[in-house]
Write a protein that binds this DNA or RNA. Structure first.
Lengths: 240, 240
DNA sequence: GACGCCACGTTACAAGCCGTTACAAAGCCG
DNA sequence: CGGCTTTGTAACGGCTTGTAACGTGGCGTC
């Protein structure tokens, strides 16, 4: 997620696509347009979006179906748009996984306000847009070069991180002060779900601490939250 | 956030409070009611909520003001409720920091759907240390570093707190001079409700006092209020 | 003032969580 | 194919934490 929200507008009506797009762009957002569900899928594959404005009535796969499909796996917020102002439609829309629902005709300012409310809410407290690639990151008393995977502390001592140590560290750096469960960490670092007695993350944390912590016996940066997970407790800043 | 969402309903009309409350409870949520802004504040101090349903028109501090106040610092989602269905009111509500807006009279099912949508969306990993994250807090004759969970007294003696000691202490530090029952403390620290003869909190207080009190036999900071609960009696200030 | 009840403090203990070490499998590079 | 590093799994031991049990002191009653 970058600094300006990136919105994907999906509607079969050219007129509405353009009107919505123009208004959002004018108010400082980045907008991409799609005419139907398959175009939308193509766009989703190409870039990252902060929110989808989705028309319910469309030729081909309709909005409800799209919504069900996306909200089941993904986590992209959806604002549904429709000509039908009926209460039942609104409710079904929300129950199907949309984050908000607006009936046409709508006031563009209300659309903007609702988009902002959702984006504000789902804005992750990440410092960086999910990618630290090519940056140099300061945290605690050291700096990480994300290109070379080299860690340099304030005294100039360097340490080379292994691939998995580096991956784990970046995942933590992207979410400072957030408690992450082992399951989340394993998912984020390796894309897999833990077995029943999986101690993989414990071990990786232990290895990472050897490189990152001044005193690995008394970890200050990567703290354990018993019964929940681990947490990077330090300021993180871009020092590129 | 525990397994069932905890909703705070703020409305000056008894009728609406009860109706909303009944419907939400029936649908598997936990509900607490407040009649006005100050009652709301009292409830907010006492337990943890996943969402606030907030009436705009209230005697005393009105909904918009409350909303501005809460959304500036906190991160509790707010759903605004109002008799005025005017577009401008909706927009102002959203722009003031509400997450959603619903006009009375409303369909309870839609209210539920919107609440679920917001709660679903804002379910995110826990920020460690609550509102005290990353700060250093002075109280009594000592200072707590919320990053490292280390307690330093005026003579420079350090003590490492365990996770549960730390959580209990931060909960108390966020509410100085307020008497909290064991039930509230257990809810705030562990997100669970006490069993019939649950002495967990007594024990944790006892352990915490060993680290915090100069003379653990005669506690001055964490005082016992017989028959009610515990209370942190000291000035608390941010010393970051 | 003595007694008993009850709330609370403390200790003891057991279960479970977590850190670490050791080892084996898998990858990497020549 | 062989040595090296990296990474997952297993095992041991220490520490944290909830539960139970016992002791103690306050408060009301007589």
């Amino acid at each position: 997620m970058s600094d300006v929200p990136h919105i994907l507008v999906v509607d079969d009506s050219l007129e509405i696509r353009n009107a919505v797009s123009r208004y959002l762009v004018k108010n400082g957002m980045r907008v991409t347009k799609a005419e139907n569900a398959s175009e939308m899928d193509a766009e989703l594959a190409k870039s990252r979006f902060d929110l989808i404005v989705l028309d319910v009535m469309m030729p081909g796969e309709d909005g409800l179906s799209v919504c069900r499909r996306l909200s089941s796996n993904g986590s992209i917020p959806i604002l549904m748009l429709t000509a039908l102002g009926e209460e039942m439609d609104r409710i079904v829309g929300l129950e199907v996984g949309a984050d908000d629902y607006l009936a046409k005709p709508f006031n563009p300012r209300e659309l903007l306000a609702r988009i902002k409310a959702i984006v504000r809410r789902s804005a992750r407290p990440e410092v960086f847009g999910g990618t630290l690639t090519g940056k140099r990151i300061r945290f605690g008393h050291q700096m990480l070069d994300t290109d070379t995977r080299v860690l340099v502390d304030d005294e100039g001592v360097e340490a080379q991180l292994s691939v998995s140590e580096f991956k784990l560290l970046t995942v933590l750096l992207e979410r400072p002060r957030l408690v992450l469960t082992r399951e989340q960490l394993l998912d984020l670092t390796a894309g897999r779900t833990p077995g029943l007695f999986d101690r993989t993350i414990d071990n990786q944390i232990s290895r990472l601490r050897r490189s990152v912590e001044k005193d690995p016996m008394r970890p200050k940066l990567i703290t354990t939250v018993r019964g929940e997970g681990y947490c990077l407790s330090a300021e993180v800043e871009d020092a590129s």
